[in-house]
Design a protein around this nucleic acid. Structure first.
Lengths: 115, 115
DNA sequence: ATTGACCTTAGACCATAGTCAAAGGTCTAT
DNA sequence: ATAGACCTTTGACTATGGTCTAAGGTCAAT
């Protein structure tokens, strides 16, 4: 599919998609006229990129993760890389729960900011 | 305390602290010589700012939250504002858990990226 | 063959969250 | 009174993750 169709289906601007490609997060082949041609699976891939991004992962982090997965790693190695990401995610969840604790404790207190 | 001491105790650069003050996240009074003078409680406040920041809240979001809390709101209103933040945090936690699910499912699968 | 939708590139521009450097004032100790 | 540490401001610069514009090529339909 052309970039406009991917843009519409993934809910991401063409400019953003070109940026993702430049950063190596997604790939396309070129038609004879120079137009990008994306695989149907790109829709899901872009969706995953957006999810990770919303959750605080930078394009570089996402790119590194995808590259490692593409780079001919064995299943075991890929599992390790992903496992590392899981640890990071768990740390983030723990941090948010900590912040949640702090805020919810301050809701209970008389002086919310504690100042 | 002067900015250098706060910087050291909070583990944040002086430049960053001046930026936080400019954005209204922290306050100081000025000494006769023009130096900023921070309250001891600023250390904890800056710590809280950094925690929230690491977890994906922008300075504007944090600033808005703090301003609302400072703005003479009743305890009930402050509790509402904070409750709203808790909802956002819970959404973030849920998102991370979703991403965690996706990745951990792909670890189990033969082709991790599903491409 | 020309209109309109779609694509290409490059480069300017924006906000965020800083860092760094210049030029200068202040305070303390010798 | 002068060195050194500390403070002030302003403005330039960085990276990230885009958006927007300009100038131009492509394609399908009329």
């Amino acid at each position: 599919m052309r970039i406009g169709e991917l843009s519409e289906q993934a809910g991401v601007s063409c400019d953003a998609l070109r940026l993702y490609e430049k950063r190596g997060l997604i790939q396309s082949v070129r038609r004879r006229n120079g137009y990008r041609d994306f695989d149907g699976s790109a829709v899901q891939l872009v969706g995953m990129i957006r999810l990770a991004q919303r959750l605080g992962f930078s394009l570089s982090e996402i790119s590194a993760l995808l590259e490692q997965m593409h780079g001919g790693l064995s299943d075991v190695e890929v599992a390790e890389v992903l496992g590392q990401k899981l640890v990071e995610i768990d740390a983030k969840i723990a941090g948010l729960q900590e912040l949640r604790q702090i805020l919810s404790a301050r809701i209970a207190a008389a002086c919310p900011l504690g100042l």
